[in-house]
Design a protein around this nucleic acid. Sequence first.
DNA 1: TGTACATCAGTGAACGCGCGTTCACTGATGTAC
DNA 2: TGTACATCAGTGAACGCGCGTTCACTGATGTAC
Lengths: 214, 214
Amino acid sequence: MEKSTRTSTRTRNPRGEGSRLAAELVDAAERLLLGTGSADAVSLRAITREAGVSAPSAYLHFPNKEAIVGAVVDRRFLELADRIRAAADGAVEPAGSLLAGCLAYCEFALAEPGGYRVLFATGMPDHTAPSSGQAAFSTLVEGVAGAVETGAAPPQDAFRSATLVWTGLHGLVMLRSARPAFPWPPLEELVADLLARVVGVSPAAGGPSTAPRS
Amino acid sequence: MEKSTRTSTRTRNPRGEGSRLAAELVDAAERLLLGTGSADAVSLRAITREAGVSAPSAYLHFPNKEAIVGAVVDRRFLELADRIRAAADGAVEPAGSLLAGCLAYCEFALAEPGGYRVLFATGMPDHTAPSSGQAAFSTLVEGVAGAVETGAAPPQDAFRSATLVWTGLHGLVMLRSARPAFPWPPLEELVADLLARVVGVSPAAGGPSTAPRS
DNA sequence: TGTACATCAGTGAACGCGCGTTCACTGATGTAC
DNA sequence: TGTACATCAGTGAACGCGCGTTCACTGATGTAC
């Protein structure tokens, strides 16, 4: 694998600031997880090595490795929810907002596949649905409802539609990472097409749609 | 984890039949992979242990662990393609055939989540797209085309539609495994809904659809 | 101002373990003569 | 028919390694008197 970029000279934290190491360990774990996407491909010793610290130091702040990985997952879910909301808020009308949020989701996942994969890896200690994950899904439900309210999409069960959009986006980004040789259409085009077909938003903002009934 | 069901008494293969062990090792690896879904959570020693054989025996038939796992992946892709085709052939008209194939795909994935996950895990040695995987996708493209031909679905780009169906199904089964606490609608209902929205097949065969424009 | 002490951040050595892989081997069975 | 040999399936011991976790410790810095 790639060499660590950490230097071996680390000065200990000043008195009373020992908890800074906790954050440094989470940073280090995140760096490693971005590369692997698998919690058990990253060892506690690798994390402390990456942080420039001895292995037992981790126990000063965390009960075990899972706790560090869990902190990374929490942080990345928050980051994901923020990016979606920021992208959605940047668009002018609800349909564009929904598309922008979905694209932000995909870009987050594709920029660091390992950092996305770890969010949905099985075997996480019953940490299964952090509130930021639920928040991101709620944003999606609201996005669909908003498009319906303004007439950009026909009336529908927003929860059901959001579920299909979520699973569609997840499958899209996971398979794009896993099968780079597949002849994938451009991301924006495919996501817009997905929204046109699943939610029924009129493709006015984007290019022509290849959806059925067009 | 669960205890192995293997007994410790194994009689060696008769002369000239040594290659049977190769198959036994693939069987053992498959059994273990069904439980974990991760190639590197299953050690070579665990595989030989499960097969009731000493660790070096694996080298009589395989150059390394990846080769054994690769054989399991090949076998399961063939199995998946067979199940899809069998289900699709059992339906009377194209639209029902498409739905049946998609349901078979989901059932294969959900019956043994680990056995499905390993098919699309990253880090497989450039084994990325076995021909049986492509065959399964071709079946899907043909399924869409068949529904269009009989008028069960409107004219469309079958490759594009198949891509969205595949990614939709993949996301569906992966998230269902990873987030069992999410309030998932029944599988058949969700898959039928996905096909109604993405491909535009009329939901005549199933119950009422909640798709937009309904 | 000086000194003893408490607190704090972090370490080094050690534990037992399972790993992938190598090597020389064992013992059963078939074959040549 | 008997015997020496070749082949074959599989093993046991050993290698060096990285792992998670424990324990007693070190040495710097603040505080009480």
